[in-house]
Computed example of a mutant assay.
Amino acid sequence: MHPRLFQFGHIAIPTYGVLVAIALVAALAMAVHTARRLALDPNKIWNLSLIGIFTALLGSRLILVLVHLSDFLAHPFWMLGLVTIRSRGIVYGGILLAICACIGYILSVGLPLRRTLDCLAPAVALGLAISSLGAFAAGSDYGTPTDKPWGIIYKHGLAALWSGTPLGVRLHPVQPYEALTLFLLLALLLLWLSRQRHDGDVAGTFLFAYGVALYFLDFYRGDRSFVFQGAISLTQILAAALMLAGAALWIRRKPSAL
């Protein structure tokens, strides 16, 4: 694959970083578009999305610093600017902080919670799908070894250096598996938006379906982290939480005013 998109002298522009930036812009545009369809204030949804994005990014970096405080004190600029966050626990911690910040903003400005979640679901699906393609290009979140003909073999040294990807081994392309699942889910969500009768239906469907996909896809990941009792991983625990949250949104639903 191509972990490096461009090279300017000693400065490398990673493909993953560029695609993540594209994913964020696309998700923001989708959120504003969906807000208009659901009769929500696009400016508030824009602000909410920015709060979520920046809290997740800065929160993950803060947790990284706290976990590796001695390294930060020795190399502060390296820790803040150059090091790649590979720990899913740290990334999930940043996402949790972002969720708390977003819920606080939703309540403070009086946005309807369930309909706002419906608005954000397609945007999140689109952003995650594009990010998965970036991970595929970089070799991040690589799959388990396979003998299937559609397996991918990474040969670029930067994939091993930046993401710890095994080179010369045929691997499950788990990132495209996830991207395809998310694009299909995005199409379903957009179709459902025009037909929904209850606030929370779209968000509940996204959370439950993505939780199921995330749970089973994790068995094909070669870098599973925090595996408990040799069976369930931290990612699968998160997936179960997403499924429960999705099911909760289907309960006590109120008819949509749209």
Score class of each variant (00 low, 15 high):
residue 53 I to C: 00
residue 66 L to P: 02
residue 44 K to S: 11
residue 31 A to T: 06
residue 42 P to K: 11
residue 48 L to I: 03
residue 48 L to D: 02
residue 45 I to D: 07
residue 48 L to T: 04
residue 42 P to H: 10
residue 55 T to Y: 02
residue 65 V to L: 14
residue 48 L to E: 06
residue 65 V to Q: 06
residue 33 H to Y: 14
residue 66 L to C: 05
residue 38 L to M: 12
residue 52 G to C: 06
residue 31 A to Q: 06
residue 33 H to I: 05
residue 50 L to H: 08
residue 43 N to G: 11
residue 64 L to T: 13
residue 34 T to G: 03
residue 46 W to V: 03
residue 38 L to H: 13
residue 51 I to G: 04
residue 37 R to A: 13
residue 51 I to P: 01
residue 32 V to P: 05
residue 34 T to H: 11
residue 52 G to H: 05
residue 52 G to M: 09
residue 53 I to A: 10
residue 41 D to N: 15
residue 46 W to G: 10
residue 41 D to T: 09
residue 42 P to V: 08
residue 43 N to H: 07
residue 48 L to Y: 06
residue 33 H to N: 12
residue 54 F to R: 10
residue 56 A to N: 00
residue 43 N to K: 14
residue 46 W to I: 01
residue 39 A to C: 03
residue 33 H to T: 12
residue 60 S to K: 04
residue 41 D to Y: 07
residue 65 V to C: 06
residue 54 F to E: 08
residue 61 R to T: 02
residue 56 A to F: 01
residue 42 P to W: 10
residue 53 I to R: 00
residue 49 S to M: 04
residue 45 I to E: 09
residue 55 T to R: 06
residue 61 R to I: 04
residue 33 H to D: 11
residue 38 L to P: 05
residue 56 A to R: 04
residue 59 G to F: 05
residue 66 L to H: 07
residue 31 A to R: 05
residue 42 P to A: 11
residue 37 R to V: 10
residue 36 R to T: 05
residue 51 I to A: 04
residue 58 L to V: 14
residue 31 A to M: 07
residue 57 L to K: 12
residue 35 A to V: 10
residue 67 V to W: 11
residue 39 A to E: 09
residue 48 L to R: 00
residue 57 L to C: 09
residue 63 I to A: 11
residue 45 I to H: 07
residue 42 P to N: 11
residue 43 N to P: 00
residue 43 N to Q: 13
residue 32 V to K: 14
residue 51 I to F: 00
residue 53 I to Y: 08
residue 33 H to G: 00
residue 60 S to D: 09
residue 38 L to G: 08
residue 35 A to T: 07
residue 63 I to G: 09
residue 58 L to R: 03
residue 55 T to N: 04
residue 60 S to E: 12
residue 34 T to M: 15
residue 36 R to G: 08
residue 32 V to H: 01
residue 53 I to L: 11
residue 34 T to K: 13
residue 56 A to D: 02
residue 38 L to S: 10
residue 34 T to Q: 15
residue 44 K to V: 00
residue 40 L to R: 06
residue 41 D to R: 11
residue 66 L to I: 12
residue 62 L to I: 15
residue 46 W to Q: 14
residue 58 L to W: 09
residue 55 T to E: 01
residue 51 I to S: 04
residue 54 F to G: 09
residue 66 L to E: 06
residue 48 L to H: 08
residue 62 L to G: 11
residue 68 H to L: 06
residue 47 N to H: 14
residue 49 S to F: 01
residue 44 K to W: 05
residue 37 R to T: 12
residue 66 L to W: 09
residue 51 I to V: 13
residue 55 T to Q: 01
residue 37 R to G: 04
residue 37 R to L: 14
residue 50 L to I: 09
residue 54 F to L: 15
residue 59 G to T: 08
residue 35 A to P: 06
residue 38 L to F: 13
residue 41 D to W: 02
residue 36 R to Q: 13
residue 46 W to C: 10
residue 58 L to P: 01
residue 35 A to R: 06
residue 39 A to N: 11
residue 49 S to V: 00
residue 57 L to D: 03
residue 34 T to P: 01
residue 34 T to N: 15
residue 63 I to M: 12
residue 34 T to W: 02
residue 35 A to C: 10
residue 67 V to P: 01
residue 46 W to N: 14
residue 49 S to T: 08
residue 45 I to P: 04
residue 37 R to S: 14
